[in-house]
Amino acid sequence: MDDTGGNEDASTRPEDDPLLSQRRGLANLAYRLLGSLSESEDAVQEAYARWFAQPADHRSAVANPAAWLTTVVSRICMDQLRSARVRRERYVGEWIPEPLPARAEWSALSHGSREGDPADHITLDESVEMAFLVVLDSMTPAERVAFMLHDVFRVPFNEVAEIVGRTPGACRELASSGRRRVAAARTGAGGAGARRRSAVVGEFRQAWQAKDVDALVRLLDPSVVAVADGGGRAAASPEPVHGHVRVAEFLVHLAGLAGRLDLLERTVNGQPGLVAVSGSQVLTVYAFDIDDSRIRRIWAMRNPDKLRSWSN
């Protein structure tokens, strides 16, 4: 195409294309598949680049452009998930999905918002809870894509089959396997209400700041597991810490090393969480899995590469 514009009119310009309204839905899908804001944004950008790289007559021949974009994003994500398994073998320490801030709270933390931040596109619901994303990360790429597309985004199995490259029957089995993994992870979880979860996190913050081991032990499930992700960029325990006494003592040890511990109660992936700050700098984001009145899992994100949406 020459630089005079040829036969392309204003209706074909990317900035005017109504398909750009699909970006939020595509970003939501990609984040849930990849657990990374930067990678999900790249996947969505790549899908749009492929769409607009087609000649106008090819685009007009696509019966359902939104479905086309969903297919392309899903396939890009599946390729990313396959390569991620190799990259994880070289990752320093434990890997945790990138935490999401709540829009208003993030703006308050950063003293203003950054226009176009990928976090703005993600809807905070139960399918982005950290516990849910961690279960998704245990699935195979095909299992994760089939389960997410069908069970969360309600894509019919015949369409899922075209995306995954399996038969509809095989995709049903993949989604069913993913469903069983999610159900197993939730076994025994009492599903504490939002108000109770918030209260538990508040009590946890007070006990931690007071360096009260006994109070922390009472708030932790006996089989609690604490996992930290430093990615080799920030100090973090290289292995998970197990058991309520060990986790409580470890937390108090961390508080002693940190001196004054500035902890803010904030929403993390749609659930009550904590943010450790030093002045205006976010050092760590904590997400929790709470069963009734006890904390079963603690995820601590310290890798600064995964905290960009929490920073200035």
Score class of each variant (00 low, 15 high):
G232W: 03
L257F: 15
E41S: 12
P55W: 13
A183W: 06
T123R: 15
R205V: 14
V145D: 00
W106G: 01
E159G: 01
E249L: 11
S278Q: 14
S198A: 14
A189S: 15
G256P: 11
N28R: 02
P101V: 11
H111A: 12
S60C: 02
V164G: 01
G169E: 14
A67D: 10
A84S: 09
L33P: 01
P99F: 08
V164Y: 03
D125S: 12
W51P: 03
A287S: 14
W68C: 00
P101C: 13
S38F: 06
E39C: 02
S110T: 15
F132R: 12
T140E: 14
G5D: 03
D212G: 05
P97Q: 13
A192I: 10
A30I: 07
V200C: 05
D57V: 15
V227T: 15
D17V: 03
V282E: 04
M301V: 14
L261R: 08
T284V: 15
F52A: 06
I298T: 02
I122K: 05
D42L: 12
S176M: 00
G93Y: 07
T167V: 10
D9L: 15
F52Q: 03
A67E: 11
A66H: 11
E46T: 14
H242G: 10
L220R: 04
A287C: 02
T267H: 08
I96R: 01
A84P: 03
H111Q: 12
D16V: 06
D262N: 14
I122Y: 01
A234C: 10
E162V: 07
A47M: 07
M139G: 04
P272H: 04
P55F: 09
E94L: 08
A27L: 13
I298G: 00
T267S: 13
E249W: 05
D221F: 07
S223F: 14
W208F: 14
S198E: 08
V268K: 01
R294N: 04
L274V: 11
Q209P: 08
V72S: 00
R87C: 04
E249D: 07
V245W: 07
T267P: 02
P55Q: 09
G273V: 01
G112P: 07
L133Q: 01
A146E: 05
R50W: 11
G232D: 03
A63C: 00
F52T: 02
V155I: 12
T71G: 07
E15Y: 07
L124P: 03
A66I: 10
S83C: 08
V152E: 00
L20S: 09
S177N: 12
A192Y: 02
I76H: 00
R205T: 11
P168N: 08
D9Q: 14
C77W: 00
V92K: 08
S198D: 08
V282D: 07
F132S: 07
S60H: 12
L307K: 04
A170E: 09
R197Y: 06
E239V: 13
A49F: 11
T12S: 12
A226M: 11
R233Q: 10
E105V: 13
S83A: 13
A236V: 06
R195M: 09
E159K: 05
L100M: 10
A192R: 02
V145T: 13
I290Y: 04
P65C: 12
G169M: 09
Q271C: 04
A27V: 06
V92F: 00
S74A: 14
H121D: 06
R114Y: 08
R75N: 02
